[in-house]
């Protein structure tokens, strides 16, 4: 499938837009320092903040994206698009092969956040891909035409703690 990315990261001044939505691109150092700061200062609330922010932005972005591509109608196509979009944004590789409207398992063998964390802070003792979890919840809600918060995503295994891949369990909240 060939995707015509709208505006192709059209640069307007110093602003970037994706599917008509302004976005900010940060390097892994920035993202990891941000996550570290939120976790250290706010604890579980900081984690929730990361998760919900990612969920909201991915839900809004992907909903807008789908609106721009009305020909993409099947859930399988949408999931493939989401996976490609994740990779295209430089967030890593994500597989939606075991997912359905009721939830399922999502895996990520490569992740921008994992690489960043390992490079910056080394091994974690617990799971740490909160952004990815939120992003998956938002995208799936958009794909299955649900509201934000419909799905809850828990990370079962994480490459930040040196697992082979990141494994997310998606359930209906």
């Amino acid at each position: 499938m060939t995707i015509d990315w709208p505006e192709k990261f059209a640069r307007k001044g110093h602003e970037l837009f994706l599917s008509g939505l302004p976005i900010a691109l940060h390097c892994h150092h920035y993202n990891m320092n941000l996550q570290k700061t939120l976790e250290t200062s706010l604890g579980s609330e900081g984690v929730l903040l990361l998760y919900t922010a990612a969920e909201e932005s991915s839900h809004a972005g992907f909903t807008s994206f789908l609106e721009h591509h009305p020909k993409i109608v099947t859930a399988k196509s949408k999931l493939e698009l989401a996976s490609t979009s994740y990779q295209y944004c430089g967030l890593g590789i994500i597989n939606f092969t075991k997912i359905g409207p009721e939830g399922g398992i999502v895996t990520s063998p490569h992740s921008h956040h994992v690489t960043g964390w390992l490079a910056k802070f080394g091994k974690r003792q617990n799971v740490g891909c909160f952004f990815t979890g939120g992003w998956v919840a938002g995208v799936l809600a958009a794909i299955y035409n649900k509201h934000i918060g419909y799905f809850s995503v828990d990370e079962l295994e994480c490459k930040m703690s040196l697992s082979k891949e990141c494994v997310f369990e998606v359930k209906i909240a």
Binding site: P109, H110, V114, T115, L118, A119, G122, K123, K159, L162
Partner: peptide, 18 residues
Amino acid sequence: TGFYARDAIGMYCDDVFK
């Protein structure tokens, strides 16, 4: 280094060989 090859490959030298 403690990094798995699967993780290290693709990363910058500075981030692995710190």
